[in-house]
Amino acid sequence: MSTEITAHYADGVERTRLTRSPHGRLEFLRTQEILRRTLPKNAKVLDVGGAMGVHAEWLAQDGHRVHLIDPVPDHVEAAAQLPGVTAAIGDARQLDTEDNSVDVVLLFGPLYHLTDPRDRQTAIGEAKRVLRTGGQVFAAGISRYLTLMELGTNGGITQINESDVDEVVRTGRYNEHAGFVETHFHTADELAQELGGFSDITVFGVEGPAWPTLDATNNDEHIDGAIRAARLVETDPHLIHASAHLLARARLT
C-alpha cells in the first residue's frame, strides 16, 4: 500500500465513517443486511482490509470467528481490542492464511485501493486460495458514478473539475478530485467479471438511489425509506449504479 493511502487512514478516518452521517449509517445497515442473508452460522471469516473492525465487531457479536487483516498498524491495533476479533498486519495480495481454511472472505477495500488490475486479480486469487469449497467472498467496489452523483447533488461540479468527473465515469480512474486518495471505481459488470473464477455471482447496489438526499438533508428520519428503496432495486441493472457502493457476493465451487 502506498504511503499516501497509509497516511490517509492513519488519522482515524475509518473510525466513524459509517456512523457519523445518515448516508454512512445507510451503507452500514445495508451491508449488514446483505451479508446476513447467506452467512453460515459460526463461520470462520477473514476480513481483508477490514480497517478498525467496524464490520468485524458485529460479525463477532453474531457468533462468527473473525480474523482481520489490514496494512495500517493503527487499524490492526484498534481491531485487536474488539471482543472475539483477532487482527494482524497484512496485504490482500499475499495472505498469511492456509489454503482452504476459511468460510468467508471480505474484501471491503482492496479492490478499489488496488488500482492496477493485476493486483486486484492477485488479491482475488488469494481469497479463492484460502476459501473452503462452498465458501463465499464478498467484494466491495465504489460505483463509477459516485462523484457525479455526489458533486451533482451538492453543486460541486465546476468547469475546473468537470473533466475529472467525466474521466472517472468513462474509465474508473479516480484522481483525488473530490478529496479521496487515488482509487479505482467499478461498474457492476466489471466487478462481476473480476470475480469470474467464482460461481453464483451477484452484485448488489448497497445504498440505492436515495443516498444523495440523505447527504443533502442530513436527516435520519429518511433512512428507513432509503433502505426500502435500495432493497427494491438492489440488482436492477438500470439503477444499480445509483448506489455509491457496490457489493458482490460469490461462491467457490
Rank of each mutant, 00 (worst) to 15 (best):
T3P: 04
H8I: 02
A10I: 03
A10N: 07
D11V: 11
G12S: 04
R15T: 08
T19H: 11
G24Q: 10
G24Y: 05
G24P: 03
R25T: 05
E27H: 11
L29V: 05
A43V: 08
G49D: 11
A51L: 00
V54A: 14
H55W: 04
H55Y: 09
A56E: 04
E57T: 06
W58Y: 13
L59Y: 08
R65E: 06
V66C: 03
V66K: 01
H75D: 15
A78C: 05
A78R: 09
A80T: 08
L82S: 07
P83S: 14
G84D: 09
T86G: 04
I89P: 13
D91T: 02
R93C: 06
R93S: 13
Q94Y: 01
Q94P: 12
D96P: 06
T97I: 07
E98L: 15
E98F: 06
D99I: 07
N100C: 03
S101I: 11
V102T: 14
D103I: 10
V105F: 07
V105G: 02
L107H: 10
L107V: 02
H113Y: 12
D116I: 12
D119N: 08
D119K: 01
Q121I: 02
Q121N: 13
G125A: 10
E126I: 08
R129E: 02
R129Y: 01
Q136P: 03
V137Y: 03
F138M: 00
A139D: 03
G141Q: 14
G141V: 09
G141L: 13
I142G: 07
S143R: 15
Y145P: 05
L148A: 15
T153E: 04
N154C: 00
G156T: 02
I157H: 10
Q159E: 15
N161P: 03
E162N: 12
E162Q: 15
E162T: 12
S163H: 14
V165I: 14
D166H: 08
E167M: 04
V169A: 15
R170I: 03
R170W: 06
T171Y: 13
G172M: 09
Y174D: 06
N175S: 13
H177K: 00
H177D: 04
A178E: 12
A178Y: 14
E182S: 07
T183H: 12
F185Y: 15
H186T: 05
H186Y: 13
A188V: 05
A188G: 04
E190P: 01
Q193I: 01
G196K: 04
F198R: 00
S199E: 09
D200E: 15
F204C: 06
E207Y: 01
E207M: 11
A210E: 15
A210V: 12
W211D: 08
P212T: 06
T213I: 14
T213G: 00
A216E: 13
A216F: 00
H222S: 00
I227E: 12
A229P: 14
L232W: 00
V233F: 13
E234K: 03
D236Q: 04
P237S: 08
P237G: 09
L239S: 07
H241K: 05
S243M: 08
A248T: 11
A250E: 01
A250Q: 03
R251S: 10
